[in-house]
Nucleic acid binder design. Structure first.
Length: 259
DNA sequence: ATGTCCTAACTATTAGGA
């Protein structure tokens, strides 16, 4: 089973680009973030023609997450408890009764002085609490998405020079670590302990070509899935322009798991 | 380097992104 995560930066503006990627990579399950699309405008029929059912937790203008799936799936939850003010950022489904699949769009935080920074930390606290409380359903669980945190210096182009700035703070990293301490493994970092690969590059200033990126999009999985993971790829070719189609500022990330 | 770029929105300028 090929599972994936992708912050598409506007689903409707990205529809043709997303189609190219789906046809080329043929993922079975995809967590999408930053739909910027209200539920009533989600193109269910379009994805159905491509072979995907869509489970959607959207909103007007901003945020929004969805799960595309080729295999039978059941929606089991949306949203982080007590965090409605941050918008639509989490959706969970049981995939074929084999794995619980969650995708998240974690808050950005803006800057260290902004109220959203403290809010980001609180959002993570509530996410972890909710994650721990979820006890029924499949034992295999995946949470993937745009986490908006650089886990280690190697995961950002600025390296050690970035330490302490937003995305690189000890406060943010401790929140991510607390979530991981519930029994989650970063599949990319586990398979490639020393690789420097990025999943996001700023649109501005030629950041992609200057290799000024961050690795902030992860697939986190429970321990039973580690040995079942055959490959994990940050698909950076799909951060490039295709013909006249503009890419998202995030690359897709996918894993092939023997489920 | 608060320069740059992209999206959505009460279509023109602004907010948000990371």
């Amino acid at each position: 089973m090929r599972i994936a995560t992708w912050n598409v930066n506007g689903l409707r503006a990205r529809l043709d680009y997303i189609t190219r990627w789906l046809e080329d990579r043929q993922p079975d399950v995809v967590g999408l973030q930053e739909l910027k699309t209200p539920d009533e405008l989600f193109p269910h029929d379009y994805f159905k023609e491509l072979g995907y059912e869509a489970l959607v937790h959207g909103q007007k203008s901003w945020n929004g997450v969805a799960i595309l799936t080729k295999v039978p799936a059941t929606l089991t939850g949306t949203g982080v408890a007590n965090q409605d003010a941050f918008g639509s950022r989490l959706i969970t489904a049981n995939i074929d009764d084999k794995v619980s699949f969650t995708t998240v769009y974690c808050p950005n935080g803006k800057n260290l002085e902004h109220a959203d920074f403290a809010g980001k930390l609180g959002w993570y606290d509530d996410l972890t609490q909710q994650w721990q409380l979820l006890s029924d359903g499949p034992a295999h669980r995946i949470i993937c998405g745009d986490f908006n945190i650089v886990p280690k210096a190697i995961d950002g182009w600025r390296g050690e020079a970035g330490e302490g700035s937003i995305f690189y703070t000890a406060e943010e990293r401790s929140r991510l670590q607390t979530l991981m301490d519930t029994g989650l493994t970063d599949l990319f970092r586990h398979k490639y302990p020393y690789a420097q690969e990025f999943s996001w590059w700023d649109y501005r200033g030629g950041a992609f070509h200057r290799k000024h990126g961050l690795r902030i999009d992860f697939i986190l999985a429970t321990s039973g899935l580690i040995d079942l993971t055959e490959e994990i790829v940050i698909d950076r070719d799909y951060r490039r322009k295709i013909d006249d189609l503009t890419a998202s500022d995030h690359a897709p990330v996918y894993a092939d798991i023997a489920l």
